[in-house]
């Protein structure tokens, strides 16, 4: 049976609709998935809608369409679109969700009641546990224990329990992706992984014990590894996942290793939800210049995760 995919076209003023148009019209997609597109007919040509189910997200007024600019009405409509896609999954009508780029500012202006779409989905899908965003390039997955906080608050924010949660969620998501025993590298906080406690003690007191506890739970966690070389090993294929301690620790390496192919997965939710790693790219809207690969990769990954889930 083909996986059923709920697809949302993203912020109407960004590159989402044009990327969606290309992706949805691509040959073979209709054979691989049963797609329901959530959007508006004005945003997608007939060639993109043909062969897919289409659900109009109501309320896209003319004033919402300001290409290249964040807009409160557009943000409101995006929240509607995500809500409808989530509802389809929650009611068992979709096995996975993919959405094209959103704009956080527009969603905020449009009245988003959560810090980001991750929390919106968690609420709509009634996910109570730990949720986190994964960055994926090819076969390598990463997540971070802390995210949008000042660097000086990181040491105080990482806890053994929090790291074990992060390892567990990426472990479970990778199993859903079809990796039977994911090899998970946990990154150190300090240079040279603290060098035996001489350059910081978090490795000894917090991160090391988390790795041990994850092992006791039966996961293949390793580390803590120095941040400057762990990605080399991961790129070489030594690990399936890397759990970092703070935002830039993972993002610097991941953006160097393949920003042009990157996928974001929302983890810890009951259905696979994927999107491309880049944003709305307002500065190039309407030129059909945006790279179609990341969104296409996001769709491939969502379908694979949905298929692996249905086998389990």
């Amino acid at each position: 049976m083909k996986p059923r995919l709920a697809f949302f076209v993203g912020d109407p003023n960004g590159v989402g609709p044009e990327l969606s148009a290309r992706l949805l019209a691509s040959p073979g997609l209709r054979d691989r998935a049963e797609v329901t597109v959530f959007g508006d007919e004005r945003l997608l040509p007939e060639t993109a809608r043909a062969g897919h189910a289409f659900e109009t997200v109501p309320g896209l007024e003319q004033g919402a369409l300001t290409p290249g600019k964040a807009n409160a009405l557009a943000g409101e409509w995006v929240i509607q679109g995500l809500t409808r896609a989530a509802r389809a999954a929650h009611q068992g009508r979709a096995d996975a969700i993919v959405f094209a780029p959103l704009n956080k500012q527009a969603m905020k202006l449009g009245g988003l009641a959560f810090p980001d779409e991750q929390h919106l989905f968690a609420d709509l899908l009634e996910a109570r546990g730990y949720t986190v965003e994964f960055n994926v390039i090819d076969r390598l997955w990463t997540s971070r224990v802390t995210s949008h906080i000042p660097l000086k608050d990181v040491a105080g924010a990482i806890t053994t329990g929090g790291i074990v949660d992060a390892v567990r969620v990426i472990h479970e998501s990778l199993r859903r992706r079809g990796v039977a025993a994911p090899r998970i590298a946990v990154v150190a906080l300090n240079p040279h992984a603290g060098e035996g406690g001489t350059m910081g003690r978090e490795e000894i007191e917090v991160i090391g014990p988390a790795v041990e506890r994850a092992k006791v739970e039966g996961m293949d966690a390793r580390g803590p590894f120095p941040a400057d070389t762990v990605f080399i090993a991961a790129k070489r294929g030594d690990f399936d996942a890397v759990v970092t301690m703070y935002h830039d620790q993972g993002q610097i390496a991941m953006k160097l290793m393949g920003f042009d192919r990157g996928v974001t997965v929302l983890g810890g939710l009951p259905v696979p939800i994927c999107t491309c790693a880049h944003g709305t790219a307002y500065e190039i809207v309407g030129r059909n210049a945006a790279n179609p690969v990341p969104l296409s990769n996001a769709l491939d990954l969502a379908l694979r995760m949905a298929a692996a889930k249905s086998v389990q």
């Binding site: 941040a227 990605f231 080399i232 830039d248 610097i252 390496a253």
Partner: peptide
């Protein structure tokens, strides 16, 4: 600003 901020890109680009 700090060791790993400099070393992560350097080693990722040219190990």
């Amino acid at each position: 600003m700090y060791h790993d901020q400099a070393l992560i890109p350097l080693k990722t680009i040219d190990f």
